[in-house]
Each structure stands twice: as C-alpha cells, then as structure tokens.
C-alpha cells in the first residue's frame, strides 16, 4: 500500500471530485428535469420545453459524460498519487 499521507491526499481529492460531479448529476436530473422545470419553461424545444427534454433524454446524456469524465479523472489521480494498479 502507498504511504499514509499520500493515500489521504488521494482520498481527499477523490471526495472533492465526487462532490462536484454529484452536484452536476443532481442539477441536470432533479434540477432541470423536475424542480427547475417551471423556470426553464420559456425555452422551447420540439413542441415542448427544455425541462421535458432533460427529464426524458438530457439527464441520461449528462450521466454518460459524468461517468467517463470521472473514470478519466480518477485514472489521472491514481497515477499522480502513485496508487494505480
């Protein structure tokens, strides 16, 4: 195992990353798709509004980007902190 201080820094960086990504996850699904939909009602798309699009398609696309971005970011962090496999 890597030495203690290095793995602590690694874990703190991981937690920070997760927090930021979870905010995006929340805002693009629960936010734009449900809670903030009335605020986005003015933006029209294909016979309905942007909130409907986020609820039915946009959120899924954002989820995809988030997971791959997280995987890439963590691979980089693994190397920086010398904890890769």
């Amino acid at each position: 195992m890597a030495d203690k201080s290095s793995s602590n820094a690694y874990w703190a960086a991981n937690i920070r990353t997760i927090m930021i990504y979870l905010v995006v996850w929340f805002v693009c699904s629960f936010g734009f798709g449900i809670l903030l939909r009335p605020m986005l009602a003015g933006i029209k798309i294909g016979g309905t509004d942007l909130g409907f699009w986020f609820a039915q398609q946009g959120s899924i696309l954002v989820f995809l980007v988030l997971i791959f971005a997280y995987a890439a970011r963590m691979n980089k962090l693994d190397r920086q902190h010398g904890v890769e496999e």
Partner: peptide, 10 residues
C-alpha cells in the same frame, strides 16, 4: 423511470 433507472449508474 428514465432518470431513475439510468442515474443509479452514476
């Protein structure tokens, strides 16, 4: 259903 059954993967 659409958001719930995919968002879990994040």
């Amino acid at each position: 259903y659409l958001m719930g059954w995919t968002g879990g993967y994040v």
